[in-house]
Design a protein around this nucleic acid. Structure first.
Lengths: 374, 374
DNA sequence: TTGTACGCGTTATCAC
DNA sequence: GTGATAACGCGTACAA
């Protein structure tokens, strides 16, 4: 297994040719005599030659790979929708047993509700699928919100898609990467990057229209931090639709909790204890909505009987709880695919903005008993 | 955006130092005078310097990344559990519209039942999480079952985990990669690779015990190709437990359909039309089980009233159908994490076998009405 | 502390 | 068709 990795020189010696011929045999097989080619390939096979992507990348000035970098705020527990989820500590396991029993693995081992793919994961899925269609390997990099790490990822790829996360929006705007860059869900400023985003305002408006016109709810409150641009857009969308419907719109969100470990949701909690609940809590994202559902359940508030709750994103976890979540779905796989498409478009010079439509997904948490769509 | 990428030479010139100093400023900041370091970093920032991983990898003889390569049989439609799923064709989209409406995206856009993460995806998730804990970027490569592509992935990483898929087992055994390698779910032969696998026999036995002792079912039939090693193990496990319980065990599977596009399941179909159904269909994997459930539903056979159906793996999709699937869950996230752990263990020389325990997940499809576990 | 020079394994441009 | 040989950008002895 170990030992020095064989190089073109080793193959050349083994086959009795020069390194140029070896390179040709691999890259332009047609321009090499058949027997020489055979000999080279056989030699390579025998000694276990694996071309070094580093050397190739250096010589060609391109790596051939595409990158996807996420800035994450829940760094080592992205798998947990709720607090307290402890990732599996592999180092603590005794792997030499005959069978490492399930019980030793703890909750981090299984696809429980805490292990569903989140927003980023579902977009990543589309990214990987599309990249594979182009024959490109994908490099997945993740980091906390410091800037250095993104160049770490960037150095390995020919094009990069970025999830700026909660607070890296400015950082991403400033970084200069000298390669095609796609930014997800971030305001399309005058930066040189491509932008792929969902129609946040439109989606929020459609959702609000449903709550108002179908369920007759008029007193809506928004839950979710206003730091990320897309959540602000959703709040604006909600206000815009309320006004368009002739209803009073709140000036502020009722709870701007940031979804970090141990988020308390004081605003929602205050509403509950005051006993003056609004008709609906419009949450800025599915993850926020799921946390709110959990909180309400603990407090004995029934959804949707006592109050409606909605999300935004359309992640799988929303379908699976005791109260399936009404939400605005983003076309996550499509967003990932579009990002690859933009990165592969060598011609254009960046700065494109692709806005994808959303779809209202009516489930139980808004009060619909027999959802028209699943 | 475009233009030549800045190098250490550019930074050095800009900062008025030598390239060695630039390199030091990044890699051993302590050994460089503070002001020089500042100057270098500022210069780098200004001109948008991104270190080339290719050059670095070449110089250090290691890339710093870990790889995960899957051989897949459903190459461009891994998202579909059923046939006919057509992936989104990004190239056909007009991305210059104000908003690309949802309807233009087609079914490939959304997390529908056809977009759930499959076995490979869930293991990959654990792999990525653990890799990030070690600060390693992950390179995801996928290919059909030809051998060349795996070296393509291998050339880019310091350690590689491989899903051999349906038929690449032998190929993987023969390839010599000169780096730590982990193989998932493949027989632990005398190859130099590490192996991470689930306790297939044990899991199958526990499942059969449940069917026999709790539900009183005795006539069990196995569904699923016997080409992959782990499916064979599961069939052996089933037979072993039946014999241990004093029941007759089938010599052969009742249907060895390979799960490819347009799989017909003639064996199952024959049982249905003959009217002589066994008590239970023990399927070799969840994906097979879900396809069988679909077939039975079309044929008007009720599950679990007319027949019990079980799976193996524990993928999310199994929880979500009309009839939630009783299955044997593998600790998929844990398997991914363990793989990284092994790849990072520089000391040992390969050939370790880690077998992880499974867990019976009782849901509706076996006939349990109020599942003891979710 | 900082600079010079060589090596890392490929690709590609030339001669032959 | 094949063989020398010069980049490619960075790390790092070694020298200064």
């Amino acid at each position: 297994m170990a030992g020095r990795r064989p190089t073109v020189y080793d193959v050349a010696r083994q086959a009795g040719v020069s390194i140029a011929t070896v390179s040709f045999a691999f890259r332009r097989p047609a321009e090499v005599r058949a027997e020489t080619r055979e000999a080279v390939l056989r030699a390579a096979q025998e000694i276990g030659y694996v071309p070094s992507a580093s050397a190739r990348g250096l010589a060609q000035r391109r790596t051939g790979a595409l990158g996807l970098h996420s800035f994450e705020y829940l760094l080592d527990r992205p798998q947990g929708l709720t607090e307290g989820a402890v990732p599996l500590q592999v180092a603590d396991l005794d792997l030499d047993q005959d069978v490492v029993s399930w019980d030793q693995l703890g909750p981090g081992a299984v696809s429980g509700p805490a292990a569903f793919p989140l927003y980023v994961d579902e977009v990543q899925r589309g990214f990987e699928l599309e990249a594979r269609r182009h024959g490109r390997p994908v490099l997945v990099g993740r980091s906390a919100e410091s800037g250095g790490d993104v160049t770490e990822t960037a150095g390995r790829v020919d094009g990069l898609a970025i999830f700026p996360g909660r607070a890296a929006e400015r950082l991403v705007r400033e970084v200069r990467l000298h390669m095609p860059v796609v930014v997800f869900g971030s305001p399309p400023d005058d930066d040189p990057h491509h932008h792929v985003l969902a129609d946040n305002r439109g989606g929020a408006r459609e959702l609000v229209r449903h709550l108002v016109t179908v369920h007759g709810l008029s007193d809506l409150a928004f839950v979710g931090s206003q730091a990320p641009w897309d959540l602000r857009e959703r709040f604006f969308g909600m206000r815009g639709e309320l006004e368009a419907l002739g209803l009073p719109a709140p000036d502020e969100v009722c709870d701007d909790t940031d979804l970090v470990d141990g988020a308390t949701f004081d605003g929602v909690r205050a509403l509950v204890t005051s006993g003056r609940l609004p008709h609906a809590l419009v949450c800025g994202s599915d993850q926020v909505a799921l946390a709110v559902l959990e909180l309400l359940a603990r407090e004995g508030v029934r959804v949707p009987e006592d109050i409606a709750v909605t999300g935004f994103d359309g992640i799988l976890a929303g379908r699976l709880g005791a109260v399936p979540l009404t939400t605005v779905a983003q076309p996550m796989e499509a967003m990932g695919r579009v990002a690859v498409h933009l990165l592969m478009g060598a011609g254009d010079e960046g700065g494109r903005v692709v806005r994808l439509g959303t779809r209202l997904q009516v489930r139980r948490s808004c009060g619909c008993s027999r959802p028209p769509t699943s």
